[in-house]
Design a binder for these strands. Sequence first.
DNA 1: CCAGGAATTGACCACCTGGTCAGAAATCGT
DNA 2: ACGATTTCTGACCAGGTGGTCAATTCCTGG
Lengths: 215, 215
Amino acid sequence: MPATNRLAALASPSQAGKTRGGEANVERILDAALAVFAVDGFAGARIDAIAERAGLSKPNLLYYFRTKADLYLAVLRRTLDMWLVPLAEMDTQSDPVAALTGYVTRKLEYARDYPEASRLFAMEVMRGAPILNAVLENDLKRLVASRSALLTRWMEAGHLPRRDPVHLLFMIWATTQHYADFSTQVQALTGRTLEDPAFFAEARRTVLLAVLGRA
Amino acid sequence: MPATNRLAALASPSQAGKTRGGEANVERILDAALAVFAVDGFAGARIDAIAERAGLSKPNLLYYFRTKADLYLAVLRRTLDMWLVPLAEMDTQSDPVAALTGYVTRKLEYARDYPEASRLFAMEVMRGAPILNAVLENDLKRLVASRSALLTRWMEAGHLPRRDPVHLLFMIWATTQHYADFSTQVQALTGRTLEDPAFFAEARRTVLLAVLGRA
DNA sequence: CCAGGAATTGACCACCTGGTCAGAAATCGT
DNA sequence: ACGATTTCTGACCAGGTGGTCAATTCCTGG
């Protein structure tokens, strides 16, 4: 996974030479950190809060991750693949409509099942992506370029309405992630969530209608 | 403006009884605060940084806004109308296509001209909207309900493709704000901004095609 | 069973940051 | 001109937070 490798190269991994059962702790820490970072952001997150949520003492957490930044980086790294993989796999299905339908569905499932990861990613990008910038400008950029070419071919073959493929991707990302990142607003306005299958279907239908030009 | 009033009722305004020329300072402070809050979030924002950006000393800033929370609230309040007004004015144009075209265009202009305000709003909602919740569940909810009815009427009259109007609004919001909130990503992937008229037109065209079902 | 490394902890510290305060400038009404 | 009020400032403080450290407990391999 190139993205992971690139990100790994950005900073030295802080958790070295662990051999014993502490790996379970690392997982718990990362889960807790994701939950806290996704709500309070990097600056607002208290490392005590993360430790408590993970069931550890603060110094014990610092034993696994030397600094808050290391922990943040690790969480980001674990999250990133979830973001990239669906797009990378979009071409495996040869039928354009099926491929896009599958992609949109996976993005919505992602928004439903990992809203915290989506929020973390959003916050990082909104901060100016100080950490992810390198990944964006390389791996993601290449990936988008190749997918754009694919989409353009599909459009020219008449399977999709013509438009700029990159903007189309933006629209898919923005809308699907909206349900995760702005779930508070969605909840306030509709009282529902993607967990509700009917609501999920409505959202999916709306996006697909927009992308494919038909239901 | 009901939204402003509601927000004002949420907390006591901190800047009282100013009569002299300090009003200009208040403006400068609000501008600076918006810039800083939009990048670093509430927790990450340093009040020193805001003061410096506004060209004041920290205690002097605190003279105008007693606490950081007061300042945050004031910035949020000033921002909110920009968000609500376009939607509220959507029906003034009787032609459905023109009305939606105008709305999308205004939202994109807003994303282009006030990206920081958009980001601030996004961050607040992503935090769980601890302050804006009341506004969302009342003013915005009512507004959305009325606009949904309008959209539904238009769909039934055959002016628009049929779909859930609330999801349609979500899609418009998500996509237009994406260009402001994720401008780092947009920039990294395309090297362009909404400031570029051609790019603006592409974005606009993509959204309109999705919303109206035709260009 | 024991030695040695891994895991864990309480106590601690340096530093940052929001906020205070007494008083100095600046400004205004009269 | 002058008192009163607003505006502004340097110095300061209390609380919180990231991170350290010596010391203890827990495992595990031999």
